[in-house]
Design a protein around this nucleic acid. Sequence first.
DNA 1: TGTTAGCACTCACTTGGGCAGAGTGCTAAT
DNA 2: ATTAGCACTCTGCCCAAGTGAGTGCTAACA
Lengths: 351, 351
Amino acid sequence: MGQELDERKLKILKAIVHNYLETGEPVGSRTISKYTDLNLSSATIRNEMSDLEDMGYIVQPHTSAGRIPSDKGYRLYVDNMMKEKEEELSVKQQEITDMKEFLTEKVEQVEELLQNTAKLLANNTNYATVVSSPRFSKRIKFIQLSLINEDKMLCVVVMEGNVIKNKIVNLSKNIDGETVLKLNILFNSTLNGMTIEEINLGTVSRITGQAGEQGELVRRVLEIIAEVAGSGEDMKIFTSGATNMLKYPELSDNAHASEIINVFEEKQQLETLLTSSEEDGEGTGIQVYIGNETPVQNMKDCSVVTMTYDIGDGVQGTIGIIGPKRMDYEKVVENLKTVKKQLDDAFQNNT
Amino acid sequence: MGQELDERKLKILKAIVHNYLETGEPVGSRTISKYTDLNLSSATIRNEMSDLEDMGYIVQPHTSAGRIPSDKGYRLYVDNMMKEKEEELSVKQQEITDMKEFLTEKVEQVEELLQNTAKLLANNTNYATVVSSPRFSKRIKFIQLSLINEDKMLCVVVMEGNVIKNKIVNLSKNIDGETVLKLNILFNSTLNGMTIEEINLGTVSRITGQAGEQGELVRRVLEIIAEVAGSGEDMKIFTSGATNMLKYPELSDNAHASEIINVFEEKQQLETLLTSSEEDGEGTGIQVYIGNETPVQNMKDCSVVTMTYDIGDGVQGTIGIIGPKRMDYEKVVENLKTVKKQLDDAFQNNT
DNA sequence: TGTTAGCACTCACTTGGGCAGAGTGCTAAT
DNA sequence: ATTAGCACTCTGCCCAAGTGAGTGCTAACA
């Protein structure tokens, strides 16, 4: 008996979670009895709650306190919510236009846009947000070498998505302007449109062959290109609202706080968080990690909601919202969906 | 009487500050009586302390507690210490070589060096550190325009100190390769070696004049150059050890913590902190702000020690160490001096 | 058989009193 | 001028009692 999760138990569980999300305090049977439309006495609720506890959906902080959701309970709640919200995008119209205004206000650089997005979400939700800059489809669009003076050469590589990388090379032996011109033509004709992975040994030897006596230099330039165009190495990460985390008592004690803030300072851990979430992503692109599920150990007492965005031309990244386990998942998901919509819009008109 | 700060009072004050720095707790007369070599009874000390309090050097958190230094007291202590340490650079030899090793280990980019410096200092001192990237002597070294495709042009500006800036321009009307070549020659011959401030209206009109029908384009490129070479706008800031601040009880309460952490997240306030300290700097280039003296209001319960570094070629910036008011000023100053020495060394061999 | 009322019990949290310890300020003696 | 001594004042800690929210169980009920 009570082994299977029937309709009524589900309803009670949802009520418990919901209430706990709001108050942050253990919720008792009497509250639920009044809170729901089930018209059951607190005693009955107590029995059901006892069952729910046996099944592992809720937990008692100590005897004779109310119950709080376990990770498993949260999971069920979130999954359920996601199913319900499947197609529905019910953000208030006002908020949408607010966002739109805010986002398109000062969009000179993509970076600024992303930073703004992070800030906007942090303000709206009162959680911490992190946005990864686009990871680019590492296709080379244009290469430019130029002599700065006798012994220094500038090497610029433009990648698809208009990401520009550059580096200055110290030359061992002098070369003249004409040679540089030739090298430019050589590189551009052979490498344009290629991804870094496509440049194999064959390509390399073909190019060095054609370069003749400049083979040495060419090899060095190729190395630089590889370094510069090389994968996610340079992924940028924008954060906002880290201090929001201090607003939640269960996280604001010293131990938790410094662990969490540290993650935001180092950023490197956020990177692993975002990239690994990218792999897990499914249908909607929205992913919810609860407590221990998060890829970053230091966040085990938080929940993370991530969403990947893709604004065409190979430009894509991930947005993450980090809050306490009792975060308002519904609101967060809605916010993310709206932002995604806005980003899409901004970039359809703007590319 | 006792209006003037005699030898003995000074000695007692120093003892109080010193002791408070170590323990973080109000220090009483008996402690000082035993602590110093003055051979005075606690009663005498009490009298002196009472005088010191009247003079505003120390403060009582509540009746019948020990005394703690006021901002004024810290100030005196620090000034005194700085005078004593004037020429002496007494960092243990071991630490120096440790630092050297650490700093030169992976110095591919200046940025990495600075980030490492920040981390090193944070670890050594257990305070938070912030390092501003060099502000460059905004002298233009080299300009390169290149066509990426029909309607996009890449504009690269290399500044002294090998800082590279770039931007992609959308062209309104097509231009051909030859024109670009001409423009390159034009820009480089007229602008090289100039600072952004030196480019006045005369220069602009001369160039646009020479450009003939490309005047419109030239003007836009000039704007970009201005934007790109424009002053400190792009100052980069590296931080480390922000979470160290949570280790000090007087700062780790929620209100303080979020104010402080926020400063580290926004970074913009740190920028004002560092630049304004640069202006105040004097002899040694080391500057100590105590409590309310700091330029950033949110830091009014902290102390900040800053030092400007200058590694030649117009490359200079500021390092700041931020901690509680009862930070170990001596240690901090020594650390900063050592780092400065190391940076100097690293760059004499490395430019 | 599922639901409910009632009751005893548990446990965290609050309140207030009492006590110890650290430290001061003052006075009187040296 | 210095010191010993004493009364006084706070803070912090502990403990005991009381309060309130909530539970589990049992017995009655529809």
